[in-house]
Amino acid sequence: MLGLFRSLWEYRGFVWSSIRNEFVARFARSRLGGLWMIINPLAQVAIYALVLSNVLAAKLPGIDNKYAYALYLMAGILAWSLFSEIIGRCLTLFIDQGNLMKKIRFPRITLPVIVVGSCLLNYVLLFGALLFVFALLGQFPSVQMLWVFPLTFIVAALAVGLGLILGVLNVFVRDVGQVIPIVLQAWFWFTPIIYPANIIPEEFKGLMAFNPMFPVVSAYHNVLVYAQPPDMQTLVGPLGVSVIMMLFGLFIFRRAAPEMVDVL
Rank of each mutant, 00 (worst) to 15 (best):
L2D: 12
G3V: 00
R6E: 13
F14C: 02
R29D: 08
P41L: 04
Y48R: 00
L52H: 01
L52G: 02
V55G: 12
V55R: 04
A58H: 15
P61M: 07
P61D: 09
G62W: 08
I63K: 13
D64I: 07
N65I: 02
Y69V: 06
L73F: 07
M74Y: 09
G76V: 04
I77Y: 07
I87M: 05
C90H: 12
L93N: 11
F94E: 04
N99H: 11
L100I: 14
L100P: 01
I109N: 10
V113S: 06
V113C: 03
N122Q: 11
F127H: 09
A129I: 13
V133P: 06
V133C: 07
G138W: 06
P141A: 14
P141R: 07
V143C: 00
L146R: 00
V148M: 06
P150S: 04
T152Q: 02
F172T: 10
R174Q: 13
R174F: 02
V179R: 09
I182N: 15
L184A: 07
A186P: 00
F190Q: 01
Y195E: 08
A197W: 09
I199V: 15
P201L: 10
E203I: 10
F204Y: 15
M208F: 10
N211R: 12
V216M: 01
V217R: 03
S218K: 02
H221V: 01
V225T: 03
Y226R: 14
A227P: 02
P230E: 13
Q233W: 10
L235P: 10
S242Y: 01
M245E: 07
F251E: 05
R254E: 08
R255D: 10
